[in-house]
Design a protein around this nucleic acid. Sequence first.
DNA 1: ATACCTGGTACAGAAAAAGATACTATTGGA
DNA 2: TCCAATAGTATCTTTTTCTGTACCAGGTAT
Lengths: 117, 117
Amino acid sequence: MTYEEFKQKVGSVILTDQGNCPVTPVVQMLQGKWKLQILYELCIKSPMRFGELKKMLKPITNTALTNALKELESDDLVQRIQYNEMPLRVEYSLTQKGRDLLPVFYAIMQWGVKYIP
Amino acid sequence: MTYEEFKQKVGSVILTDQGNCPVTPVVQMLQGKWKLQILYELCIKSPMRFGELKKMLKPITNTALTNALKELESDDLVQRIQYNEMPLRVEYSLTQKGRDLLPVFYAIMQWGVKYIP
DNA sequence: ATACCTGGTACAGAAAAAGATACTATTGGA
DNA sequence: TCCAATAGTATCTTTTTCTGTACCAGGTAT
């Protein structure tokens, strides 16, 4: 994709607010030390339980995992379902909105293939 | 793109390190309050001078702009060229590596079109 | 001489993010 | 009655990031 193609596409698709980068809010939604790794685990396997995620993301703390999951949930990227069994079971999975990030991740990975050794 | 397609593509292309999200380092490179907005301005217009960027990104401070540009430069996403005229002129532009992020930004914007009202 | 232009630096303080440690609620079972 | 398991909370400290303010350097115009 060239500059010019990009400008054309950007211009016609979403550049309604002059000067405000439309990519920023999306990347802000993915910011934080753990969110992307959580989404990645949920891309690979879904649903996953709290403790399962914690094991995969070791050495994450309860606090960090809880906070990240809450934010992802409030952005509607991740769904939380609680089963009131004993012991308690809570499962996390991607929402449709979350799954729709896959092409973004894939574009990033293609860039990574070229530039990360 | 579905889960399964993603897993297949990820698995074959880049998932050599088990459990480590390959998207994370790229997003980390874009983190920080100003970097994306700088890249975005340089997508729209390139090259741009220091003062010109400062005007576009107002109310950014000198410190913040300098730091962000230095990091982008050290990641080889942005190129700095200094012309020793008077008054001094310094121009910033995207490198090829930086321009190759355009498909990523475009994928993000397509997602944004669907989910950001 | 002095003030002004561009493109920065230096440094202190405020604010935000992350980490460490301890604790809670539910309830099934020994 | 007390312990274990899961899925968290609560609170404090440390670390990182961001901001505000002042200043510098080379050269030019007055």
